[in-house]
Structures are given as C-alpha cells and as structure tokens.
Design a protein around this nucleic acid. Structure first.
Length: 569
DNA sequence: GCCGTTTTCGGCCCGACTGTTTTCAGTCG
C-alpha cells in the first residue's frame, strides 16, 4: 500500500495546488475525488494499471488514467512536477489552517511572499496580514490562534496512524541481535487516542550491540540505557534497554502514565515496606516473570494496560472491582453505516454482506438526512425508495438483518431533520450535529438536550464533534448531555471513526456511572472501514465499559425490543 | 477533469456562516 499512499498524497496536493492557481473547482475536485476512491476502496493501483482496468472505475477518465499509469511506471507524474515549479508545494500546508483556503493562501503568497506556516506566523506577529485587503486585525488574531493549535499538534499522531511504524520497529527488534525480549509500552500500550512517542522496552545484556544494529537503520541518539530517533513520518520513537531481571518491572512502569505510577508507587511502599524504584525491582529475592505477579504481590486485582491512566484503576483494583471489559467478539450489531444512497461508496447489499462476513447479525443503515445536501442527504421520497430496497434485500435472506436507520442532522434549534410522518418510518434515528458549530456553550447544550428529548431520537451521534488533531470539540456541557440521556433513556454513540473516537473515554466513565447505554458505531462510508468498530473497542475498554453497557452486544431480537422501548415511556 | 449523452459540451456542489463589506467572496461541512 506504500505506492497508493504516495499517489493519494500527490493527487490531493494537485487538487489543492490547482485551486490555489485558480483553476476550475470541479477540475481540482476530480483529483481529490480520485484520491478518496483509491483510499476508500483500497484499490491496487499497480494491478489495475497492468490489466488496463483502471479506466473502468467511475471517477477515472482518460487524463487520470494516463497520469496514474505514468506514476506506476516511473514513480513520478510530470504534470505534478511541472505544477510545483509554478506553485510552491509548501503552500499546501497553509491551506490546512482553519479559515484559510486556497484563495487566501494565494493572496498571502502574492502580496507578502508567505510560503510556510512560520512565514505566516511572523507576518501576523508583525501586523502585516491585517493590512491586506480582505483581511483584518480579527482575522490576523484568529490565524495566530489557529497556528498555535497546529503547532501544539505537531509531532503527534492518532493511534491508528502509528500502527504501521510501531509494527515495523517491532519486526526489526525481533531480528535484532542481542534482544532477548521486547514489548511496546507507554501511550501505544495504554491505547491513548493521540500518540506523541512510540515507546519500546528491550530486555538485553548487550545494549551496545542492539544500539549499533539500530544505528544502521536510523539516525539515532544513544544515551546509556535508551535510544531515540524520528521515523520517516516524523514520529518520535524511544527504545529503553533493561537487564532481563528488571524487564517485567519496567514493562509495568513504562506502561502506566505519571499519575498512575505515582499512586502505584505509594501503594507498593505501603504494602511491601520497600521504597519504590522505577528502574530496579526493589525485592531482590523475587524475579517477576509476568505482570500479573506484581499485582498478586500487592494483593490487588490485575489492571489491564488501557486502564493505567490514573488513581481510579488502583482504587478499584484494591477493592477487586475492575470489571470484565468488553471484547471484539461480544459485538453483534453494526450500527450507523452510510451507503451510496448518500455519501457512501458501497451499496446496501455490499455493506450487509461485508458486515455478515465480519460476524455481525444485523446492520443499521444510517445515511445522511435531507439538510446535508453536500453529502447527498435523503429527501422524504428517497427515504421511501431506500426502505423499499431494504425490504427487498431482507426478503432475499442474506444471512444478516438490515434495519432502516437515518443519521438525522440536528438543526440549529435542536429539532430533527424530518417531519413526524417521515421520522416514524425509521427503525432507528441517530441524531448528530453537522453544522452551526460555533454556538455558545449554553446554546449548544440546550440544542443537544432538545434533540435528546425528541421521542424519535434513539442515539446521540458523535457527541462532542471533535476531530483528533484537526478540530476541537464544540463548546458543550457534556455532563449535562449525559445527564439528559440518562433522564430520557437515550443511547449515546461512541463513534469509532479513528479521527473521531467520540465520546472521549473520560466521559464514557461518567456515562457508565449514570447508567447510559453506549452504541459503538463505525460511521463508515465503505466496506473497508466497517472494521473501525473493532479498533474502537479498545477505547470502550479504556472507558471501563463491559458488554452489558453496549447495545451492539444485544442479539437482534433483544436489540429491536430495546430500540422500540426508547421514547415510548 | 469526469460524466453522460438528444455525441460534443454543459453540469457537476448546495447553503449557511463569517468577516468584511455596503452587496459579497471565501470557507466549510
């Protein structure tokens, strides 16, 4: 997939550069659209070029086929090479700043020669941006503010975006001379949503040998007991070395975060009478073979790595009250999936069969509602047509039940996107915010509570609206939202899209406390990302959820009964 | 640039918000 990744990036760059150049927007979109298709459908580009089948895929015309063929054969696209001579490639980074699109980027470049985010920051600080026509002091301040956000996000990645690199390093350590044992630790092992450092622990008696081996692959810094370096994707990596006798001890200590370790250290001291030492296991007569032994030694329950964030897990482990956390195989229902009726790539039948093959008993299709024009949302007439298709598919007995859902926009006033007659037709309604993000906290909270109160709402979709490392949550009192869901017996979504992971795990803990049921939903737009639901389970675990907290774990008939009971009381 | 076709070029992606205008261009979902 390396080839495709490179191509996707080039196509997206072409799209942005053409827009900066002032080309027809539809021409520019053709490139980003092609990139989206390659990504969503996981196309094997080299194979398609070889059999001459690329042109048969919708969205790939003569020009794109020619350029992509050139790319497969030479690794380059001459059109692109020429384009970046005309428009500096660095300008793409400026369009990533919220509120700055291609036109403003062009103006900034032409008038002030701004090419990079650093240039732009300096120009703002010098007050030059406010002097350009079309900009103002307020805009300048907003830009500066947004640059601060982007800088704070630099060097960080979403957890899933680090899998490949962590895996590569893992494989490398497997074959490295001198490595006795090794494990991932830190944020990755805890399943943090955002990763700032990929961290490994290596058991070895010959740290120099291991370091030398790694030195051949990476440009690294070597201190006594660790090496650090950056990957090609600019993620920081640390590898700590330890003597075999301290491996399990350090595995535990490098996994927990600071707050957890502080509380663990106190407990260790209290229960063993020995001072806590981060690197050396203080009890000389015991050799730890597994982490479990450590918890047994303190006479507390085993704490899974994803819970080692703070004192809560230690407190509960002392009381032996850590629950059996949800597992992938507990899931039975696939909820909130988009088909090609709105902005998805696959037909309902393809989605249903794919979900069945992943082991699911039922799937709830939730396309966009009518206000979401940009996503080809369904007007009431198309809702009827879609329901007819679902009825027919269900008659075919595909081996999976298909339910009629909708992802209804929550309008600015908190109402849903259809009249009652239409709303009654759905088996399930996910209500989500897709517009009017900039409201005051109290206005947004009132809006969401109003949507929760609707007798037709079953699930509140992506409750905070955050996009990891690109958009903050909108202003909302999330506790009040969870309280309202508890009061009205409504479900809250955990959106398993790897860029969302919304509701955040900290709030899942509160939702569980209040008895609110959670629905884990992939919000997928193609068959490949249905598996995001499995990725999401890790974060439900991080939020202390058990299978009994999650509606997707209900078998079909129970699920339908449960859904039907909502809003009727 | 792609698509679909009354096959050779017009439509495609709409509407709301924002900030800067004084009637609208640019951005975003």
């Amino acid at each position: 997939m390396e080839l495709e990744k490179k191509l996707i990036k080039i196509l997206r760059n072409i799209s942005i550069l053409l827009q900066i150049k002032g080309e027809n927007i539809f021409k520019a979109s053709a490139y980003s659209n092609a990139a989206d298709i390659i990504e969503a459908m996981q196309l094997d580009i080299a194979e398609l070029v070889r059999n001459g089948k690329l042109g048969e895929i919708k969205g790939f015309g003569e020009a794109l086929v020619k350029k992509i063929t050139e790319f497969v054969e030479t690794g380059k696209i001459s059109f692109y090479e020429k384009l970046i001579q005309e428009v500096p490639i660095e300008l793409v980074s400026i369009t990533k700043i919220p509120g700055i699109g291609p036109k403003k980027t062009k103006t900034l470049f032409e008038q002030l020669g701004i090419k990079s985010i650093d240039d732009l920051e300096n120009a703002c600080l010098e007050g030059k941006v406010a002097n350009i026509k079309g900009f103002s002091k307020t805009t300048q301040e907003i830009i500066l503010n947004n640059i601060q956000h982007i800088k704070a996000w630099k060097g960080k990645k979403q957890q899933f975006a680090c899998f490949q690199e962590a895996n590569n390093i893992n494989n490398l350590l497997k074959s490295a001379p001198g490595v006795i044992e090794h494990s991932i630790v830190g944020e990755m092992r805890r399943y943090s949503e955002i990763i700032s450092n990929i961290h490994f622990l290596v058991s070895t008696t010959e740290p120099n040998k291991v370091a030398k081996f790694l030195q051949e692959k990476f440009n690294l810094k070597y201190n006594n007991n660790s090496v650090s370096f950056y990957t090609e994707e600019e993620v920081s990596v640390t590898i700590n070395f330890t003597e075999p006798k301290n491996f399990v001890w350090q595995l535990h200590n490098f996994t927990g975060n600071k707050n957890y370790i502080e509380h663990f250290a106190n407990l260790f001291q209290e229960r063993t009478g020995n001072p806590f030492d981060f690197y050396q296991f203080p009890l000389e007569n015991i050799i730890l073979k597994r982490e479990q032994q450590l918890f047994e030694l303190l006479n507390i329950q085993y704490i899974p790595p994803e819970l080692r964030e703070n004192s809560l897990s230690i407190f509960k482990a002392k009381e032996w009250k850590i629950p059996v956390l949800i597992k992938e195989k507990d899931l039975r229902g696939m909820i909130h999936v988009h088909s090609n009726w709105s902005d998805g790539f696959n037909t309902i039948e393809q989605l249903a069969i794919a979900a069945k093959n992943l082991g699911f008993e039922y799937i709830v299709i939730c396309d966009h509602s009518q206000t979401a024009k940009y996503a080809n949302g369904l007007e009431p007439e198309r809702v009827d047509q879609q329901h007819k298709e679902i009825d027919e598919l269900n008659k075919k007995n595909l081996g999976i039940k298909i339910l009629k859902g909708i992802e209804s926009d929550i309008l600015a006033d908190g109402s849903l996107d259809y009249d009652e007659n239409t709303l009654k037709k759905f088996d399930l309604v996910v209500a989500s915010v897709h517009s009017h993000f900039k409201m005051t906290k109290s206005e947004m909270t009132r809006r969401l509570v109003y949507a929760i109160m609707s007798p037709y709402t079953h699930i509140l979709g992506h409750p905070t609206g955050r996009l990891l490392l690109s958009r903050e949550s909108y202003e909302v009192d999330i506790k009040e939202i969870i309280d309202a869901a508890a009061d009205y017996g409504k479900i809250i979504e955990f959106n398993a899209n790897p860029y969302r992971l919304d509701l955040p795990w900290e709030h899942l803990i509160y939702a569980k406390e209040k008895g609110v049921k959670i629905s884990i939903n992939p919000d997928s737009h193609d068959i490949n990302s249905l598996t995001d639901i499995f990725y999401g389970v890790n974060f439900l675990r991080k939020g202390w959820l058990e299978s009994s907290d999650v509606v997707n774990c209900l078998e079909h008939d129970e699920f339908v009964r449960f859904i039907n009971s909502i809003g009727k009381s």
